[in-house]
């Protein structure tokens, strides 16, 4: 089959369009997709920030005080705000795509997408509450 079709693949008269390097700007859905993929940069950024905080914690009270002071700088607050928005975008897109990526069946029936996505949000609120409670308790 593939051998047979090979002779037509580079047919000289057919017009082949080339994909522009800017393809992801050409269409709303594509731009949204690339934005979604770029949330990963902010996810990594925060993971590194988190790691940095732990290292400061390991280095003793002074280093940690220095770290927390630095977080109050406008530069960091700006970065954190932007990162927060991107991470939120990641969360929303991730939750909403879960039902597409995973089919949940209960007694042979497919659970409606809304319920699968919705339960993500419920667990999210619960987990966030637990984390916030642990960190603000004392």
């Amino acid at each position: 089959m593939s051998d047979l079709s090979h002779h037509t693949r580079y047919h000289p008269r057919w017009y082949r369009r080339r994909m522009s390097v800017w393809w992801w700007l050409k269409n709303r859905a594509y731009s949204k997709f690339v934005l979604r993929e770029l949330t990963s940069v902010f996810v990594a950024l925060f993971a590194i920030l988190f790691l940095w905080q732990l290292r400061a914690l390991a280095h003793g009270p002074d280093a940690y005080a220095q770290f927390t002071a630095r977080l109050k700088a406008p530069l960091f607050l700006t970065i954190d705000t932007v990162a927060f928005l991107f991470v939120l975008f990641h969360t929303i897109t991730w939750f909403n795509l879960t039902p597409t990526a995973m089919v949940v069946r209960v007694r042979g029936k497919r659970v409606p997408d809304k319920i699968v996505a919705g339960s993500n949000y419920i667990v999210w609120v619960l987990l966030s509450g637990i984390v916030a409670w642990i960190l603000t308790r004392g």
């Binding site: 079709s5 037509t8 057919w14 017009y15 082949r16 369009r17």
Partner: peptide, 16 residues
Amino acid sequence: FPIVRDLVVDITEFLR
């Protein structure tokens, strides 16, 4: 898809 003519595209690859 490669354009064969006007609005007609080649579907050989798709079938393969």
